[in-house]
Design a protein around this nucleic acid. Sequence first.
DNA 1: CACTTTTGTGACAATTAAATCATAAGGTCA
DNA 2: TGACCTTATGATTTAATTGTCACAAAAGTG
Lengths: 228, 228
Amino acid sequence: MLNILIVEDEENLGITLSEYLTSIGHQCHWAATGSQAKKIFNEQNPQLVLMDIGLPDISGLDLAKFLRNIRKDFVLLFLSALNDPEIKVQGFEIGAEDYITKPFALKELIIRLDRIMKTQSILDSWPEEIIHGPLKIWFKRFEVMDANNNLIPLSQKECAILELLYKHKNDAVTRDEIIEKIWGDDKFPSNRTVDNYIVRLRRWCETDEAKSIEIQSIRSIGYKLIIN
Amino acid sequence: MLNILIVEDEENLGITLSEYLTSIGHQCHWAATGSQAKKIFNEQNPQLVLMDIGLPDISGLDLAKFLRNIRKDFVLLFLSALNDPEIKVQGFEIGAEDYITKPFALKELIIRLDRIMKTQSILDSWPEEIIHGPLKIWFKRFEVMDANNNLIPLSQKECAILELLYKHKNDAVTRDEIIEKIWGDDKFPSNRTVDNYIVRLRRWCETDEAKSIEIQSIRSIGYKLIIN
DNA sequence: CACTTTTGTGACAATTAAATCATAAGGTCA
DNA sequence: TGACCTTATGATTTAATTGTCACAAAAGTG
């Protein structure tokens, strides 16, 4: 999921971290020295750097500055036994996202990482308002507006299906995919059921003569939401 | 700007923090003991609690649990000389937003606070008085005014739920989100409980025929507070 | 053009969530 | 202690989403 560079001269910790982060699906690279770190940084372009401050050949602070100079778009996190207030502030000033004082439990790292991830990726939600021609969609409001400016509430399923089709707009979505995604694999509504939801959605988007949004059916495959 | 409770038995630090935070525009209350903290917490309803762990009469961890039990909607930040990995994890598990290891520079606190403010919308301070049509809300006073000019007190939970809905106004808020945000993930009140709070809030806003504020339910999702 | 398969549709039934009401548990305070 | 308030829950009613069916329409097929 993430490409992570761990800069840590203490072999034990370096390997433990690396193994753990790998086990939860990330790709890890461990460097024990500053020069190794620079090399790996250039080769791997990591998105996240976990950096010890006490390295054998260079201070982690200086190394971080050096890396930031090469490229700015990575998240930096210091791990250090140094609990000197001044150094901590310096760490943040270089642009660290956090500074973890050793000793720490793996769990603390995870918690702090999770928090960072959450704030860095607010990219997965829809824009507030989606507009196509006279038609408007507010997924978070469970509402759409038709071509006659009527505000139409969407039920949970209607909204979920519209969202699914919209996510794959202009591409076909199979009936099975719809059933799988909306109902899960433990429920098996009839194909007629899916049709019915499509009908309801069409009643809304067909108020627009110009067909800004259109749900086409693809025989024996499924449906396709077209944006014109 | 923010109402802050500082729980710190070391007088020097307590006063320094308090003075500094006051100087940048916050309202601070300093408690040197757990019992003082409880008292001030109830009187002041702080949005942010800075908590030392080593207190004379109670562990900061236990105190935090106690306060969280009263009310969930405050940001918690531990300040502690204890750098025991296990305790740090416990701190996070209680729901701390951060854990600062002493000694720390004032600047570190500011940096970490700033970061928290950016992500935590709890700290978005509402205007003193919110007016929609004849209806008025004072979150900080736990009071609302209905369309007939009756001043209605809100209980802790009523106010918290109203605030949550208001924060996401016009968007749906799921039942799970309500339960999670108001009760935390260790308590599981029945769905009826949530319903009842909604009923009470509706009793208030439905005094306004014009529906300046309206709480709509979205079946199998949750609720939506609409501003007309 | 028949014939088959798939899709569309409205009516209706099933299901399940929400509203309502009564009431209890727990805290607080005089 | 008893009055009072907040909070929580269970039983029952109410209502809307959701699912199905029967049949019509349309689209493929040889």
